[in-house]
């Protein structure tokens, strides 16, 4: 699959590299055999159904969890190392803050605990939302609190920002504003962002990279453009029983038959023959197809592949 695209090894530094990563809880494997890399400077969406292992993956990268097997590296360093700790910032889904601290004290905590703290950047983010610096965190609205949590994460000046469902509990206006802030900060500082979300429309236009996990396993990883271009939506009429050979000779991700009409999302393994209407799927269509069919064959684009010790590409 997708051969002919990779030109030797990865040229850009990896922000994250996972090798055979797995995490087992008492109730079973939350994440299994995950191998991928996220090059620096990307804004990457981490997508999957609830319980797919998104939070587990982020938790391992943020040094909150230890993997059961395999390794994960943040800028080449172990997550528990001081370097990874300093270069990464993590924003948990519930955005925990000290409720009795004022906003100012919360920012002071960032200043006291982080060597590269950028007070101005943090204050600007807080001010942009008209959050009073003297207010206690406990008295703020959900959106304001999220903004303070964002300010704390950005003030750390991370090279890698790990966000777990960052916008889930915000109204559309605040969500748009904060996403704008996130994009602007990433633009200015070249921050790599790994952001989990199950709002697919939210990711469109925001992410240029994608990691999809379902049922604990990796389904898709790579450049959004490459992933989209590697897929084709086919629409047409079918003649006999079952799927036409024109379709099955390609890698079929998902197919639907309604009456005589056939809709299929395929990864073409050659030119498309027959009278089919072809379209490039949009991001939402692609993601929905993979989420609906968790056992679809995974696709890891060359830039997202990791090399094992022998230097050979490891495909999932």
């Amino acid at each position: 699959m997708s051969n002919g695209m990779g030109l030797g090894g990865p040229a850009v530094e990896s922000a994250i590299e996972a090798h055979g990563l797995g995490k087992r809880y008492r109730r079973g494997w939350a994440l299994k055999d995950c191998s991928f890399r996220l090059p620096t400077g990307r804004i990457c969406g981490l997508v999957g159904p609830n319980g797919a292992g998104k939070t587990t993956l982020l938790g391992i990268a943020a040094n909150l969890l230890e993997p059961t097997e395999g390794t994960l590296r943040v800028f080449g360093a172990a997550p528990e190392s001081a370097e990874a700790n300093r270069r990464g910032a993590f924003l948990a889904q519930e955005k925990p803050l000290f409720r009795r601290f004022t906003v100012e004290e919360t920012l002071r905590m960032g200043r006291e605990l982080n060597p590269g703290w950028d007070q101005k950047a943090a204050e600007d983010i807080v001010r942009a939302g008209n959050v009073p610096l003297g207010a206690k965190i406990g008295t703020l609205s959900g959106g304001q609190r999220t903004r303070v949590a964002f300010a704390l994460a950005f003030g750390k000046r991370p090279d890698l920002l790990l966000l777990d469902e960052p916008m889930s509990d915000l109204d559309p206006l605040v969500r748009h504003e904060l996403m704008g802030t996130l994009m602007a900060e990433a633009a200015e500082h070249g921050t790599t962002v790994l952001m989990s979300s199950h709002m697919l429309t939210e990711l469109e236009n925001v992410c240029d990279y994608l990691v999809v996990i379902a049922a604990g396993g990796l389904r898709l990883a790579g450049e959004v453009d490459e992933l989209l271009a590697a897929h084709t939506l086919l629409t047409g009429a079918k003649a006999g029983e079952g799927l036409p050979r024109d379709i099955t000779r390609h890698t079929v991700v998902e197919s639907r038959v309604s009456g005589r009409q056939v809709n299929a999302l395929v990864r073409p393994d050659g030119p498309i023959d027959g009278a089919w209407q072809t379209d490039t799927p949009n991001l939402e269509e692609l993601l929905l197809a993979y989420l609906r069919v968790p056992d679809a064959p995974p696709l890891i684009s060359p830039s997202a592949q990791v090399t094992d010790r022998a230097g050979k590409a490891v495909a999932a």
Partner: peptide, 9 residues
């Protein structure tokens, strides 16, 4: 989680 995601061990 908040404290350990700052630059302190």
């Amino acid at each position: 989680k908040l404290v350990t995601s700052q630059s302190v061990s």
